[in-house]
Amino acid sequence: MRILLVDDEEELVSTLAERLTLRGIDADWAASGEEALALAAQYKYDVAVIDLKMPRISGIDLKKQLAVDHPRLQFIFMSGHGSASTFRSGVDEAGGVDYFLFKPVDINQLLSRVKELVERASGPEWQTTNR
């Protein structure tokens, strides 16, 4: 399992990536949408964890672009919003999102969401190969 963390708060994503690595997850991080697109072109990721508000390429625009280039990639949004309703109105235009987490992120919650998404994405493939 390999995940990509994207947030313009470099200290946040680098620390989060280090903590995930300590838990046996391959985690890369990018401090901008541009960096994230470059990494996604180079490596195959299962899940992208993206901050909603970023300069230049917003989280929503990044998700849209990644979803076109990497159709199997799953998404989790992170946000500094105070409530689900204000956050929802921000992500509706992104064509939906699998999960969202509020900052500060609970690493155990993030891990369980990531695992859930990876299992869900690999489910149909597993069924096909076992028929």
């Binding site: 708060e9 620390t15 903590r19 500094g80 919003h81 105070g82 900052k103 500060p104």
Partner: peptide
Amino acid sequence: SHEIKNMLAIINETAGLLDDFTRQ
């Protein structure tokens, strides 16, 4: 408030990392 949330998130992750080091 978004900015403050970001700072709290960094503090949260860094404290979590310290905890990870201690457990290790």
